[in-house]
Design a binder for these strands. Structure first.
Lengths: 345, 345
DNA sequence: CTCGTTTATGGTAACGCTTACATCCAGCGG
DNA sequence: CCGCTGGATGTAAGCGTTACCATAAACGAG
């Protein structure tokens, strides 16, 4: 005999398959005695629920799709938090990373569609992918964006204002007397939340009447090596900026090591700031000034929100929630007046 | 009219559903003219394959389960590599993290069973979970262990020898003249690969005729804070070990910062070694001596191996593959003779 | 006791696809 | 021309569960 199905259980317990199904999904509808009897049979004959058949019949899966653009530790924290919330509610996660590849992303989204996932969480969106997401949404699949805000539209999100985050940092640096501030950022990566940090930088400059000097801006996808290379470039400028703001902590750590290897010191010769407040940022030498981002919280609240959307039949509801960032000032930045005079190699 | 099914496509294209199915899964069996006609219809009426129905009918899903004990950056690299291999072959990944919780792990494994996943990749196994995995295996689901070797049994794995990795490091440190070496490690976490690093430490001591001093061993689950705390404890011992080997880079970075904050220096006052060769380990101050672990490679080769197992009907085949680790010597360790004499606060 | 209401359970069609098998037909050697 | 072969396609029986509706039993108010 093959595998045990709901039919076998029903026969053995002397009930109908409908009742067995109820035992699993709506136990409050079945008489305690029956419940127990059925459960006993299930246990005895090693019945295993066939979730695929269930999803098929229900024309709706309980799986939740997670689409990630690229993974950083802080993003991983979001996913991890989202995962535990989902698990608590019995939803498995199918996670896909597209790594900036638009075709791959469409492929993954298509897969989600083919599996009729219950909902989709999107971490790191691009212009292209917002369109894709709306398509999913139109097909009745709730989607929610993390890590950014997109107010004014009808996109669901639980995120923070990247423009504001960067603005706060750059504005602070300016208030510390810095006039020429470098910016290292994946400007052209197509990732909205990263681009927005660049916008925050611009905004802070113009708010303080400082000019935007294009050669002080380096495009670099977040990685230690890229941060180091970018900093090296900035340092070799005829008139290098003495203060550099990076769009991620990893980039900033790379920048730190560039300065270190040049035999110079932070924050005596250069001020360096990061973004993310990653675990390690407190422990680098020197510790990094950065912008705290609620990674774990976004994951948790985001998944809760998504589950709400999934639960409510009313597909009309909209969840837009903005979380706060905060400026973390540590040892890698100081006021401009405390910098050493610049001596070139 | 509801959603477009294979029946609609068949009708519109004037063929049977069987042919449509073949168009999707075995196009070489259908005449080019028919193929094209069917594909045109699919395109025109926006047909979306129902993977759930397919899996159900086939009594086998194409989803691959990934079970992770706990996530580190290096583990994330494995998953990421595994992901792209899987995607290439059209397999989505459903990933679950159990976070050392045995019940949660059983729950996830059960879910995999309920969804009749095509195969399971396990990263970080415990004694308990090896048993669970064998159960899956017995039900015909290919499983493969990553990040460790388990020779002599009939468990599939693509990993490296954790005992050997730690042995090599500790043996090296001993050869540098260190007689009393501290060890920081999640000894009691239940994770085999971590415990094995401890075994490697023991083995190196006894191979060199050194005694195992229990107070030099600190149990700490991998995190920066734990590493720092453990190092603080070791430093406050009446006669502290001047050389400390940590079972992960993160722990080692924590240890580094403990020394730094005590106003002492590595490697003048203490030698610190890590394990993993994480990206950051090359850039800490001082850079970390560590053991390189083929994270990305394990993910890639492991997934390829798993797909092979899934492909071969012969469930008898066994894949056991050991990858090499290597000792990376950087600035955080030196020979015992170069240490400063110990001065206590 | 009766009738209406609630609660527990049963019967069963439907879900969209796959696949083993049947059928049909063209081509070909004898 | 026959029968055979093999390629292309059709036929239809499931796959295990759910959800809708029907029925039966229990209950309670009048």
């Amino acid at each position: 005999m093959g595998i045990v199905t709901i039919v076998d259980v029903a026969r053995l317990a002397g009930v109908s398959t409908a009742t067995v199904s109820r035992v699993m999904h709506a136990p409050q509808l079945v008489r305690p005695a029956t419940l127990e009897r059925v459960q006993a049979v299930m246990r005895d004959c090693g019945y295993i629920y066939n979730a695929t058949a269930g999803d098929f019949s229900r024309r709706k899966s309980t799986v939740i799709g997670v689409l990630i653009l690229s993974t950083t530790t802080k993003v991983a924290a979001s996913v991890s938090a989202a995962q535990s919330v989902a698990t608590e509610h019995g939803f498995p996660l199918i996670v896909s990373t597209s790594g900036f590849d638009a075709d791959l992303e469409r492929h993954h989204l298509r897969q989600f569609l083919e599996r009729s996932v219950a909902g989709v969480l999107v971490i790191g969106h691009t212009r292209a992918n917002v369109a894709n997401i709306r398509e999913l949404h139109d097909r009745g699949i709730p989607c929610l964006l993390l890590w950014d805000v997109l107010p004014g539209g009808d996109d669901n999100y639980v995120g923070f204002d990247n423009v504001q985050g960067a603005f706060t940092m750059v504005d602070h640096l300016i208030s510390q007397g810095h006039k020429r501030i470098g910016f290292v950022c994946g400007v052209n990566s197509g990732v909205d939340r990263i681009y927005k940090r660049y916008l925050g930088y611009q905004k802070a400059l113009s708010a303080n009447g400082l000019p935007l000097e294009p050669e002080l801006v380096r495009s670099a996808i977040s990685s230690f090596a890229n941060g180091k290379a970018a900093m090296l470039e900035l340092m070799s400028l005829p008139d290098p900026p003495r203060c550099v703001c990076c769009a991620s902590d990893v980039l900033a750590m790379g920048a730190l090591s560039a300065v270190w290897e040049a035999g110079l010191s932070v924050p005596r010769d250069y001020c360096i700031a990061g973004f993310d407040n990653s675990e390690l940022s407190a422990y680098t030498t020197p510790s990094l000034s950065t912008v705290d981002v609620p990674g774990e919280e976004m994951g948790r609240l985001g998944m809760e929100a998504l589950l709400t959307l999934i639960g409510s039949e009313r597909s009309g509801s909209l969840i837009q929630r903005e979380l706060a960032t905060s400026l973390i000032l540590r040892a890698s930045t100081c006021s401009a007046s405390r910098l050493n005079p610049l001596k070139r190699a």
